[in-house]
Nucleic acid binder design. Structure first.
Lengths: 339, 339
DNA sequence: TTGAAAGCGCTAACAC
DNA sequence: GTGTTAGCGCTTTCAA
């Protein structure tokens, strides 16, 4: 590997000068500058980022901790974070914990061990807020991203999306279309991650005077399969259902499949709406109506917040950024009820 | 940030001793050891991985360069690489180039600049072998993964999967079921990445005496949408088609959708088979028959190969690993032709 | 405008 | 067993 000193020697100067040339510090003679650049070029020199990080006291690296990439939303979000990080000059270390707390612990230690300058953690069902607070107390910048309830923030810097609103928007859309027999499929436990989306939906529906008893609700995991099973159970248990809200796109796609298996035509016999707007949502047929998350914005805010955390003084107040509200995207899976 | 020296001071020893304790180098008195550990614990010390990397001459980091994560296969593969890397004690830096050569260049420079010890590059349509060879010449370990044609290896260390075989297996499966009117949808240009899969299919079909003129072939991108469009064109242009091979799962899902839109029942009216076995393949309905890639194995081999490249002497012969052959996975989208 | 020197946090020889 | 020393590749005062 070519080092700075070797380049310097080749150019007949000293390491400091080469460094100055490379960082455009000015104060370098034009002639010297040319010689140095030539040497750099011909030797294929690349600065050792680790060494630079060491002396500067910071690696230009952020870490993103995701719990699983089984759900296609995570990679899509990771992509956005990567983009945002690059824009600010950071590299992104992606840490997949596979829903394994030990793995997460190991990653956080490593990151706390200065592999990255800070860490963005995807809010997921099982996030261990305690471990993250510890980390933060030890001086490692941490940002929690995609917190779903801005009104009740976590004890960490966070980027929040008001997903209660997502439930509200979905409900309003279905009610506006004239649906009165509604069901919902929740992609988490009742007290889990998706609870707010569901509450927004329930509150809005009930406020409109439409009944939505517990028997119209199903809970499961955030997967296509669970969505399909829930839909089968729902359609069997609640006669006359005309619309289903799923707290995420994956289960919504499962509902679509269940409908197809039962010979129901969407949206004529059943309207279906999800949340997130993953890529699949518009690629499937019928294309899925959904409430889109401001993914790119959340990613950008998270990266920016992490950057401020990195430079912030200790004991500054806990920051929180709130994204634009989610947005209704009407596609082909929702329509007026029959009759 | 707590450093080694601070810990040493607190424990009343010197940095070397702390280091010895932490690395379990033995030769440390039990009593001292205890004191050191206590200090480490109470001060929340974490070794600075950058410093360690610098002195050891290697970061425990590998980079994975992927061109895009629009295609769900990439994240799934990235996950496997991450797992394999972790198993060998490496962290994984994920570099998404967004199909942008400049971005790729920037990443490769950074990685060549010792952010990572080496780089695994996903074989994609547009991989720039030249740039990679340059990098390798500069001494950066590079492994190309998922090369599709072991018989014609690239000028780089690589992990190859014989995807010609994938085409063969798909063809044999369809022929065995009795199909005689076949079509194919290729997820790349005729000379693109998927050409071998298609050739395997064509060769096998023709060897069996079944005709497969160019009019039964469609080319496009590796997306659901292109698969759907190709299928519409194919089904309109070739009457009596009973089975379609898609060179990837995504276009295969598109074919499934086209069939549904045309009121065709799968597999009664049309059999569909893809390649890869992404997660969606078994989550969709009908579940997709496909030829599964040995993803986890390829990931492991790539990581292992990169590790040997890292420790290999210069000018060693170009290594190539070949995975197990792809495997036929029969699900619900293929069956006997009607009549 | 350029060079010399110190030091980032850590490890590895070697000496004590 | 433990400490001393040197140095990884780089940046950054400070002198020349």
């Amino acid at each position: 590997m070519t080092t700075l000193v070797e380049v310097a020697r080749a150019a007949g100067v000293t390491a400091a000068t080469v460094s100055n040339v490379l960082r455009n510090r000015g104060k370098v003679g034009e002639e010297t500058r040319r010689r140095v650049l030539a040497a750099v070029e011909s030797m294929g020199y690349r600065p050792n980022l680790m060494a630079r990080a060491l002396v500067e006291g910071k690696p230009h690296t952020m870490a993103l901790v995701v719990s699983s990439i089984a759900n296609p939303f995570y990679p899509e979000f990771a992509l956005e974070v990567e983009r945002a990080a690059r824009k600010l000059g950071y590299f992104l270390l992606v840490c997949n914990t596979n829903d394994d707390p030990a793995q997460e612990r190991a990653y956080l230690d490593a990151v706390g061990g200065a592999l990255a300058q800070g860490v963005i953690v995807m809010n997921a069902d099982f996030v261990q807020l305690d471990a993250l607070q510890d980390l933060r107390r030890r001086g490692v910048p941490v940002v929690l991203c995609m917190w779903e309830r801005p009104q009740e923030p976590p004890p960490l810097p966070c980027v929040a999306v008001d997903l209660y609103q997502a439930g509200v928007l979905a409900a309003e859309h279905l009610l506006r279309l004239g649906h009165k027999r509604l069901g919902a499929v929740c992609g988490s436990e009742p007290t889990g991650n998706h609870q707010w989306r569901l509450r927004g939906f329930i509150d809005t529906v009930q406020k409109a005077g439409v009944e939505l008893p517990a028997s119209h609700l199903r809970y499961g995991h955030d997967t296509i399969d669970d969505g399909r099973n829930a839909a089968h159970s729902l359609l069997a248990g609640v006669p006359g259902l005309t619309a289903v809200f799923a707290t995420n796109d994956l289960p919504a796609l499962g509902v679509l499949q269940a409908a197809a298996e039962l010979g129901l035509e969407v949206p004529r016999d059943l309207s279906v709406i999800g949340v997130t707007d993953i890529q699949l949502a518009h690629q499937m047929r019928p294309a899925l109506s959904t409430v889109a998350m401001p993914t790119a914005e959340a990613a950008m805010l998270a990266v920016q917040m992490l950057q401020s955390e990195i430079t912030a003084k200790p004991d500054h107040p806990l920051p929180i950024s709130i994204t634009e509200p989610p947005r209704l995207v009407v596609r082909a899976s929702t329509g007026k009820p029959r009759g």
